[in-house]
């Protein structure tokens, strides 16, 4: 059954590095699984954890958050905030019964098309082996 499972992935990519890196993967025609749906944001710091939780609530099997490498943020320090913010989100997701492997935080620069492709491929594979997700309880029904 896991063989036929096609995970649904939402990707939040910062405009300056990771979105450009994904563009680079395209320009270089480096193929990866088509499971990801990308939402462009100016900076990884813009990504409200609420958006991630919402995606899981709606049924996403995995969420990818990608930004500039530490030190390379277009806005100088946004990605440091993201790093800390998502470090805090993991325990909360675990509380919701969402495995650690379903949220992935990555640094992908504008020149790392190959890395972007690799990240999406390995993330997709990881989600396939995790299998379909238990449904998150509806709003208000949380324990």
């Amino acid at each position: 059954m896991a063989i036929d499972f096609e995970p649904r992935i939402v990707g939040f990519l910062c405009n300056w590095c990771s979105y450009a890196g994904a563009d680079m993967a395209g320009t270089a025609r480096i193929c990866y699984p088509s499971n990801i749906r990308v939402i462009r944001v100016p900076c990884s710091a813009r990504i409200d954890p609420l958006l991630v939780v919402k995606a899981f609530q709606l049924g996403a099997d995995g969420v990818l958050v990608a930004g500039c490498h530490p030190g390379d943020c277009h806005y100088t320090e946004g990605n440091y905030y993201s790093r800390r913010r998502f470090a805090l989100l993991y325990p909360f997701l675990e509380y919701l019964g969402i495995e650690k492997g379903r949220l992935r935080l990555e640094w992908v620069s504008a020149s790392e098309g190959r890395k972007f492709s690799h990240v999406v491929s390995s993330f997709t594979e990881g989600l396939v082996s995790l299998g379909p997700r238990e449904k998150v309880p509806a709003e208000g029904a949380l324990p």
């Binding site: 395209g26 320009t27 025609r29 480096i30 193929c31 990866y32 088509s34 492709s117």
Partner: peptide
């Protein structure tokens, strides 16, 4: 283009859905 047709050239069905 960059995020779909160029990177999913091996699967027309999946690319169209995406």
């Amino acid at each position: 283009r960059e995020h779909c047709s160029w990177v999913h050239s091996d699967g027309k069905e999946a690319a169209t859905t995406k």
